[in-house]
């Protein structure tokens, strides 16, 4: 069932990506690899590289911010959890478009951030709107809950007593994190990280509104090729590249974490 829902459109795009583009009928069923050869061009490779970099950075920053947050949520009282969860999940219910406009208001040349800096007498301005940095900031905000929630449930399954034991045996809080908390919450980190990375490299709205030319990502290109240039076969081949990257990321990350686990099991 799930496979059908996923497989049919994906197969469709896969086939389409080998067709020839045609200005009259969107595509003509003449098989070619031209679409893929076209991607192997400095512009598109650069685009893919930037997309992956932004995705990876967003994932890493989300993990760094998400761990302390997830730890707090996993260990705090019920009442505090209810409030904190609400605050964390609420942004997920707001459209990314609205959030992007929010970031424009904050990061813009005359935005809240720069106005505040100026009123504090800071002699420079932070000019990140319409660049990859604005996209990164907005993505981190967008994806933080996506990273935090699986991490939180992984940490909840680790008894506090286990940390206390390690602490009692002479491990400083940092070592407790590295040697107990991190390995035991790795499944949460893997699933949170994969979700985060997958969403981050396929976003459209955020880079379209905040990225400008510098922050353009693969998703924008696919969108434009499909809906502005009407080159569906080429858009399909770009989409296939995206899908392959996601699959590769899943394979690598799940593969290594499995191997770590089985090595532990044997050791």
């Amino acid at each position: 069932m799930l496979l059908a829902f996923l497989g049919i459109p994906l197969g469709n795009i896969g086939v389409l990506s080998f067709f020839t583009s045609s200005s009259a009928r969107l595509w003509s069923p003449v098989l070619t690899t031209a679409n893929y050869r076209e991607i192997a061009d400095a512009y598109f490779l650069d685009l893919i590289g930037r997309t992956l970099t932004i995705g990876a950075l967003a994932t890493v920053i989300c993990a760094a911010l998400g761990y302390p947050l997830a730890y707090y949520l996993a260990r705090c009282s019920r009442a505090a959890l209810a409030v904190a969860l609400f605050l964390l999940i609420m942004p997920l219910m707001v459209s990314a478009v609205v959030e992007a406009f929010g970031w424009i208001a904050i990061l813009g040349r005359e935005g809240i951030l720069n106005t505040a800096l100026a009123s504090l007498g800071v002699p420079f301005r932070i000019d990140v709107l319409y660049s990859q940095w604005a996209v990164l900031v907005a993505l981190v905000q967008l994806l933080l809950p996506v990273m935090t929630l699986p991490l939180m449930s992984a940490i909840e399954d680790i008894p506090v007593r286990l940390e206390e034991v390690a602490w009692n045996l002479g491990a400083s809080p940092l070592i407790v994190f590295r040697r107990i908390l991190l390995p035991l919450s790795l499944p949460g980190l893997v699933s949170g990280g994969l979700l985060c990375f997958t969403v981050a490299i396929s976003v459209v709205v955020t880079p379209a509104l905040l990225g400008g030319r510098l922050g353009r990502m693969l998703g924008n290109e696919i969108y434009d090729q499909a809906l502005s240039a009407y080159d569906w076969p080429f858009a399909s081949s770009l989409a296939m590249v995206l899908v392959l990257i996601v699959f590769a990321a899943i394979a690598v990350i799940v593969g290594t974490s499995r191997r770590r686990q089985s090595r532990r099991g044997r050791a």
Binding site: R161, N168, L169, G170, I180, L184, R264, A267
Partner: peptide, 21 residues
């Protein structure tokens, strides 16, 4: 702090680290 006290503590339940032998 606890990790500098060098006092051994054994809890009611064993609390072994599940990911280690």
């Amino acid at each position: 702090p606890p990790h500098k006290r060098e006092i051994g503590l054994v809890f009611q339940t064993p609390m072994l680290f599940p990911h280690l032998t």
